[in-house]
Amino acid sequence: MSKRHSIVPPISQAGPKPPVQLSSSLTIADSAVLTGSHPIAIHGETVIHPRARIESLCGRVTIGRRCIVHERATLGAVGVSGRVTENAVTLGDYVTIEVGAAIQAGETVIGDGTTVGVQAKVGAGAVVGKHCTLTPHTEIAAGEVIPDYTVIYSNGMRRTDRRGVTELRNKAQARQIEVLRRMIPSNPAKFA
């Protein structure tokens, strides 16, 4: 075994510790950040990568089953208005939030099977439908409603996904989660 240790600078666990409701089959990295005052609920078999941030300062955050939240993604970022709503961010099942994506708080909903691309931004109150794909650097304006099966490109182009590969994608996601569960040391006790 190697003697080298990972050099991971300490993370600032700033802000209050939120009340959490974590599933027992969850994989959450030690260096993920959960902060805020409202409850955070994460359902079964979801994977939270290191350095992901989940903030519940503006309301409740709910993450569905078998979601993957990548590093540096921010769920429930405080928007310009900063108003408190009952549900800040709700993710469906099989949602992937990629590296550095930001989901603003304020009744924002991401539907089942949707992928939010690298460094994409979803504004407050936006409702993204099921099985959508937001490519990297996409920006969804606040309050926008995106129908199901929409693919949105960062240059604003949109089309409807008619490939019908939802089942396959869900299966691939389940496989990926299976692998990640073995790879990412989980420490849900830290957040409880």
Binding site: S2, R4, S6, I7, P9, P50
Partner: peptide, 20 residues
């Protein structure tokens, strides 16, 4: 920075996960 024998310069504030 941390400077290694082989001349790598690694910032202390870099996040390297799984260095092995």
């Amino acid at each position: 920075y941390i400077e290694t024998d082989t001349g790598n310069k690694v910032a202390r504030k870099a996040t390297l996960v799984g260095t092995q």
